[in-house]
Design a protein around this nucleic acid. Structure first.
Length: 158
DNA sequence: TAGGCCATCTGGTCCT
DNA sequence: AGGACCAGATGGCCTA
């Protein structure tokens, strides 16, 4: 078992153990300084638990469906919440194809950003790469951990 | 086979 | 007007 990236350090191992308690849910990070003396085997097991975030996709879908959005009605031709009258936008096949290409490019760049982020968050070399939702949640936890670490180091001694 | 993840298409809305 | 952004729908691939 090895770790991806370059940061295999005690600090990182602390992060890996702490992150277990956060369940990678999108909620404020907490209790980041309580665990520093775990055995490595225990640590590894915990981290693998983290990587396999149970119910992650389900949470994603529910979050998507519950996302507040203007004009969030399934019916076509409804007015927006701003009260603007709706004009049906006429679009030709050529325009549609162009829009599809743009959308593909947009999603491609989004995925590139996700790949960059995957390289930044510390993970064990896992046979399966992090999904997008896992990447986001792990990044959130990692940032929180590092922030706490900084605050700890900057705190006055004594 | 079911569930998770992802790519793609599509139409609505926002913004320039 | 048209591009960017967003979310729903759909289908394919992979794994347990």
């Amino acid at each position: 078992m090895e770790i991806q990236g370059t940061l295999l350090e005690p600090t990182l191992l602390d992060f890996a153990s702490d992150v277990h308690f956060l369940d990678l849910s999108p909620k404020p990070a907490a209790k980041l300084n309580s665990v520093t003396s775990l055995h490595s085997a225990d640590l590894r097991g915990r981290f693998l638990d983290i990587i396999s975030i149970p119910g992650g996709d389900e949470a994603t879908r529910s979050a998507q469906s519950g996302y507040p959005r203007t004009g969030d009605t399934p019916a076509l031709g409804t007015a927006s919440l701003t009260g603007r009258s709706k004009r049906k936008r006429v679009i030709t096949t050529v325009q549609r194809q162009a829009a599809n290409i743009r959308e593909r490019r947009r999603m491609f760049s989004l995925n590139e950003a996700f790949d960059d982020l995957r390289k930044k968050v510390p993970t064990f070399a896992y046979e399966k790469r992090l999904s997008r939702i896992e990447t986001l949640r792990l990044a959130i936890v990692y940032i929180s951990f590092m922030t706490d670490l900084l605050e700890e180091n900057n705190a006055p001694i004594g």
